[in-house]
Write a protein that binds this DNA or RNA. Structure first.
Length: 230
DNA sequence: TAGGCCATCTGGTCCT
DNA sequence: AGGACCAGATGGCCTA
């Protein structure tokens, strides 16, 4: 396998080559060697006194201990980001066929984000496409429910278990992208996965999402309280 | 060469 | 207290 053909591996290769994990350079962020003092706080950095809200006097860390702690923290963060990238790759893997589909409205958006066919989707494009895909599924489901409702009313028959599930608003457990990262439980309990209310006519109708990125019909941007009030 | 995308480091904040 | 999460900063790589 050609390592250089995979941007992710390329990046990892690069980081390993330049600042190998756990190397002393971890501490200095080798390209610049600046991070020994806070950019926001001119006071000596790397005090590493987590929180600093404790009134207890903290034990002074020796330079070696500081190094070791910093290295540990950096390594954790690196691992966290790598896990995130693995998840992103999994999502990407599922979304790529939709991105390359010429009839897909999403593909134009991937182009909008500078993703020519044949190239790896960027993170932002992957997320936008995934969102579009979910919206599409939602509208398809709406439409299906509507049709099933018409049919069952017209025929006056019991529609059986599956249609009833659809008609009552149950979320279908399709073997699609959502199953990659969501459990059945999370699907059932999540309120954010309620069927989307938007015209099946497409994005040309209704107000556009103001975010300027997705440019899709607005369907309620939930704005949870910021976790980090500034 | 400018701009997009990315990985990494870092300090701050929140959660368990 | 330690870990998770987040956002800002920075520099490298790649492409138009």
């Amino acid at each position: 396998m050609n390592v250089l053909s995979n941007p992710l591996m390329r990046a990892q290769e690069r980081s390993l080559a330049v600042c190998g994990p756990g190397s002393v350079q971890d501490l200095h962020h080798c390209p610049q060697g600046f991070n020994l003092g806070s950019r926001l706080n001119p006071a000596p950095m790397l005090s590493l006194q987590s929180g600093q809200k404790s009134t207890k006097p903290q034990r002074e860390l020796s330079p070696e201990e500081q190094q070791e702690l910093r290295r540990k923290i950096n390594s954790r963060e690196r691992k966290r980001m790598q896990d995130l990238n693995i998840a992103m790759d999994a999502l990407r893997e599922v979304m790529v066929p939709y991105a390359s589909s010429p009839s897909s409205a999403s593909s134009s958006q991937s182009h909008q984000h500078g993703v020519p066919p044949g190239r790896r989707l960027s993170k932002i494009s992957t997320l936008v496409l995934a969102r579009n895909y979910i919206l599409l599924l939602g509208s398809s489901l709406q439409e299906m429910r509507r049709l099933l409702g018409e049919v069952s009313v017209g025929m006056g028959v019991n529609t059986g278990p599956v249609p009833r599930l659809l008609l009552t608003g149950g979320w279908p457990f399709i073997s699609g992208p959502s199953q990659l990262l969501l459990t059945q439980e999370s699907l059932l309990t999540s309120t954010s996965l309620a069927p989307v209310q938007w015209s099946s006519a497409g994005a040309s109708e209704g107000p556009l999402c103001p975010c300027g990125i997705c440019r899709l019909p607005r369907f309620s941007h939930s704005t949870p309280a910021p976790r980090f009030p500034k």
